[in-house]
Amino acid sequence: MIVLETKKLTRAYGGVVAVSEVDFQVKDGLITGLIGPNGAGKTTLFNNMTGLDTPTSGQVFYNGEEITNKSAHRICRLGIARTFQNIRLFKELSVLENVMVGLHFKTGKDPLKGRLKAAVDSYLHVRTEYDATHEKAMKWLEFFGLSEFADELARNLPYGHQRELEIARALATDPQILFLDEPAAGMNPSETESLMNTIRRIRDLGVTVVLIEHDMKLVMNICDTITVLNYGRNIAQGTPEEIRNNEQVIEAYLGKEEE
C-alpha cells in the first residue's frame, strides 16, 4: 500500500529547478532509499514532503489526503517525522528534554479539557506532566541505549549519539513515516553497522522508513526499494538489485564514457 506519494512535484528557486516533476512513492512498512549525486534534489524533496518548503507545482499525498501546502507542525501531527543531514538538536536542552519536546503534542492532547484549562493545568501540575512525559521519553532513550546521558546537554553528546538522539526525538512524535537525511554521514564503519541494525529495529516497530544516503553498502543492504534522483529528476526506481544494474544510474554516478 502506498502511504506517501508525490505527483509531478517541482521546486524551483528562481531559475534553478532543484526538483522537477518527481513522482515518488513510499510503500507502507518498507525501507525506501533515496539516492543520487550531490545536488540531485534529495533534501529538497524531503523538505517539500515535510512542510519545511512549499512546492512550486505538483502535489503531495499522505494516506490519500493532500498535504501539499500544510504547515510543518500539522504534517508532523499527521504522522510524518524527520531528521536532518546536519544534526539539528535543541543543543541547549538536555538529552531527555529533546525527546520530551518530541512528545509535546501527544501529551497536550486531552479532548475533555479546553485549551486554556489545559494550559493552566500544565502550569499547576508541572510535576505530574513532567513525570508522565518523563517515563515515555526514557523509554525512547533506552531503545537507543542513551539512558545514561539523559541529563547531559544535547550539545555535549558524542557525534554518533547525537545522530541517535535526533532519531529518538523524531520517533517520540509517534510517526507512521520517518525520513532520515543521511543518517550515516560522518560515521565510522562500526557505527554505520549499528545504525543499520537500528533502522531495521525501527522498521520492525511498524514505522515506514525513507532515507537519503550516500553509503552504498548501507543502502543496498537495508533498503527494500530504491529511488534514484539526478538533476532533480526521478531516473530509476526498483529493488537494490535492479538499481545496481540500471545503466542510467551507473551513468549518473560514474559519468558517460564519451563526453
Partner: peptide
C-alpha cells in the same frame, strides 16, 4: 525553549 532554539525543528515536532 525549543522554539527559541530552532523554530523550524520545533514545528517539525508538532
Amino acid at each position: 525553549r525549543a522554539t527559541s532554539l530552532d523554530q523550524d525543528t520545533a514545528k517539525l515536532m508538532g
